[in-house]
């Protein structure tokens, strides 16, 4: 913890204060909802970023964990009348179990095989949401999910939901920063650079990869539960391949291996479709384009890439030959 207090407390508090002021500045319900979605997507991106950006393990099926969180919460509260908070806890547990069962064999794979396996897993889960209609409500979805309540107050006002979701997201942000700065974080980056080298220097790569996979699945599950209790209606189409790709895009734009970048990526790509009218028709086209262009020209992601360019420029102006990056 001391490292966290030394390096990040100021930044996180300043950011928290800024976010706490948003509901006072934004009065329109529409924009408040937008900020709520940014919060949910940030939580998702933070988790995927740990896995993809830091440990270098791709997941093309992350929407499945988001869906598992949402559906477990939804089914427990709607069908079995469990109250929302325990349901949310159960959802995280279910997701962690699934992530373990899937993660142990999957993370032995590398590169393309890992990509395809996670993609296949995501599609299987989505098919289950659609086909197990007795439990999940099938293609038409699950309606009437109750909102969360806190200390006797039902959180059905967007403003309350806003504080709840950003509270959780900021907590996750702090946890991420802490992980990244710890021994574990350095080990994760070592795996990213070379798994063999990491193993040779004593990192238990197999265990660590599963651990980070489970952590990122738990983030996604939490985001899914919060989403389900906020929108009160869920259907399989929200948890498909396209959503997984969007999450990858957010991580890529955020800069892969930058916690603050994850916030930036999630915020930009959530706000962009709302800001640009007529974006909707071009949405997948633009997301595809962003992915290609960023990865071709700045393979470290947009934020990291720009920082690198800026650094080189500084060196260049001082007449120092740029270090090989």
């Amino acid at each position: 913890m001391p490292a966290f207090f030394r390096h990040h407390l100021l930044h996180v508090s300043a950011f928290a204060l800024l976010m706490a002021l948003v509901p006072f500045m934004v009065t329109s319900r529409y924009y408040l909802n937008l900020f709520i979605f940014i919060g949910i997507h940030t939580l998702l991106t933070l988790g995927l970023n740990l896995l993809m950006g830091y440990a270098g393990q791709i997941s093309l099926g992350h929407a499945a964990f988001f869906g598992l969180g949402a559906y477990t919460s939804g089914i427990l509260t709607v069908t079995y009348h469990v109250s929302p908070w325990p349901a949310m806890g159960a959802a995280v547990l279910v997701t962690i179990m699934v992530a373990l069962v899937i993660g142990v064999p999957t993370l032995k794979l590398t590169g393309y095989y890992l990509g395809m396996a996670t993609l296949g897993f995501g599609i299987i889960v989505n098919i289950c949401f659609r086909e197990l209609s007795g439990i999940t409500g099938g293609p038409s979805g699950l309606v009437g999910i109750p909102p969360l309540s806190l200390g006797g107050v039902v959180l059905d006002e967007p403003r309350y939901v806003y504080y709840l979701i950003w509270g959780v997201t900021l907590g996750a942000l702090a946890v991420s920063l802490n992980i990244v700065d710890s021994r574990v974080g350095r080990a994760l980056r070592a795996i990213h650079d070379s798994e063999v080298a990491a193993r040779a220097s004593g990192v238990d790569t197999a265990r660590l990869k599963i651990w980070v996979f489970v952590v990122s699945a738990a983030y996604a599950s939490l985001a899914g539960s919060l989403y389900a209790h906020f929108v009160t209606f869920i259907s399989p189409s929200s948890f498909g391949f396209m959503f997984s790709v969007k999450l990858v895009t957010m991580v890529v734009v955020g800069g892969m291996a930058s916690v603050w970048g994850a916030v930036f990526g999630a915020a930009t790509l959530t706000a962009l479709p709302e800001v640009l009218a007529a974006f909707h028709d071009y949405e997948i086209l633009i997301f595809g384009f962003i992915l290609m262009v960023v990865m071709i020209f700045l393979p470290q992601g947009l934020t990291r890439g720009f920082l690198d360019l800026a650094e080189r420029w500084r060196f260049y102006r001082r007449g120092i030959p740029a270090a090989k990056v």
């Binding site: 086209l285 997301f287 992915l291």
Partner: peptide, 12 residues
């Protein structure tokens, strides 16, 4: 990521 991007770009 590039080929996935190309894939959804072509879809779009």
């Amino acid at each position: 990521i590039i080929t996935v991007g190309a894939s959804i770009f072509l879809r779009g």
